[in-house]
Simulated assay, not measured.
Amino acid sequence: MDKIRKNHHYVSQSYLKAWAHNHHRIWTYRTLVSHSAVPEWEQSSIRSIANHQHLFTRNIMGNDSDEFEKWMDKEIESPAQIALSKARSHSPLNKHELEHLLRFVALHDIRSPASYIEHLKRWGLEMPGIVEGAMQSAISKIEAEQYRTHFSVPETNPDSEMIPMRVTKEIEDKSEVGILKTEVLLGRGLWLFSIRHLLSNTYKVLNKHVWSILHAPEGMGWITSDNPVLKLNYYKAGSYDFKGGWGNKGSEIIFPISPELLLYSQVGNNTRINTVSRELATALNRFIAENAHRHVFGSKPIAEISEILPRTVDKVAFDDEKREWGTWHARQKESEKGYQK
């Protein structure tokens, strides 16, 4: 059996290499460290940063599979390389190249640990209602079919088998009615289904926006992070959040593509931006840093980052998080036992 890919990058190495220098190393600022003696900025190999073991591994019929990791590489990362290279070299992109680049942006918005944590919170609030609505819809369709002479074939999502789901019936003896119980496991399987769905369909809304490539002012450079796509809602000076959406009117979508260039769009605004002031560039870099999860990346150390995003020194929290990701795969596999795959 061929060896599967185990080291999964949630920020592409091809993306980070724009900030890397000698021997593919990149300056890294960590937001959580185990000891105050850890330098604020360190050089990290892009091969060893922004990745976790088995982050996107699926368990299929009891066997580990890296088909999802390969799918992202083949369908999104590899096709985006020409567009990424052309954009970085100031060459115009055709329609198809721009779409490849925007799908690459979508990928980096939704496959990070920060995105997973956000999804988990939202699922905890919304999933009971979603499951209840789906069950009621299914029951209504079943009841409607009883009065038809020809039965329709139910529509199915080909990726729905990725969702860890368990359906059980509870019917007492001699009873004609019972309870149909549906359970959905909130974890990796549901996350991978969500990623596949968004990258196969929903991302296309990005094609409808007008995009600008902003050059950093002379003497400045764009930073990036392990959560590199910003969806900024800016209300007024000092009032903003990062809860915007791909199709939310007024939301600003920001994605640095190199220390010199940044991809930008404001949903619903058809005006392209050609220049950016030092004041605006400083604000954008601040937003990029604040949106980081555990790492800020730069082509050089930037002293101001520690003021914008003071790091947390906590050995217990650091060790706990390291252990959580170290046992991620084993815990996800164990929790998915007994669920439909």
Rank of each mutant, 00 (worst) to 15 (best):
Gly247Asp: 15
Ile49Met: 14
Phe56Val: 05
Lys141Ser: 13
Val313Leu: 08
Lys231Asn: 04
Lys231Leu: 10
Ser12Asp: 12
Glu176Met: 10
Arg25Lys: 13
Asp241Gln: 04
Glu290Phe: 02
Arg286Asn: 01
Asp173Ala: 14
Glu145Asn: 10
Lys236Phe: 03
Leu192Ala: 09
Asn270Trp: 10
Glu172Ala: 14
Ala330Glu: 11
Leu125Met: 12
Lys121Ile: 15
Ile117Gly: 00
Gly187Met: 04
Glu97Phe: 03
Leu192Met: 14
Thr275Val: 07
Leu32Phe: 05
Asn207Gly: 11
Lys70Met: 13
Ser12Thr: 06
Ile26Gly: 04
Met61Phe: 12
Met135Leu: 12
Gly219Ile: 13
Gly178Asp: 02
His23Glu: 11
Leu232Phe: 06
Tyr240Leu: 08
Asn269Gln: 10
Gly178Phe: 01
Ala330Cys: 03
Ile139Pro: 00
Ser78Glu: 12
Glu118His: 13
Val210Cys: 06
Asn157Ala: 15
Ile26Trp: 00
Gly338Lys: 01
Ser44Trp: 01
Asn227Asp: 05
Ala289Met: 03
Ile253Met: 01
Glu145Cys: 08
Trp27Asp: 00
Lys341Cys: 11
Pro217Cys: 03
Ser91Arg: 15
His54Gln: 07
Gly238Phe: 05
Lys169Leu: 15
Ala289Asn: 02
Val296Met: 01
Ser12Met: 04
Gly124Leu: 11
Pro259Tyr: 03
Asn207Val: 10
Gly187Pro: 08
Arg47Ile: 02
Arg148Ile: 07
Pro79Leu: 05
Asp319Thr: 10
Leu98Tyr: 05
Lys315Asp: 07
Glu336Phe: 04
Lys6His: 12
Glu75Pro: 08
Ile60Val: 15
Met1Asn: 11
Glu40Asp: 13
Glu334Trp: 07
Glu252Pro: 02
Asn248Ile: 15
Thr224Gln: 00
Phe104Ala: 08
Ser48Asn: 15
Gly62Thr: 11
Thr149Trp: 02
Thr182Asn: 05
Gly250Val: 01
Lys6Pro: 00
Thr282Ile: 01
Lys74Glu: 13
Val177His: 05
Val33Gln: 03
Phe242Met: 09
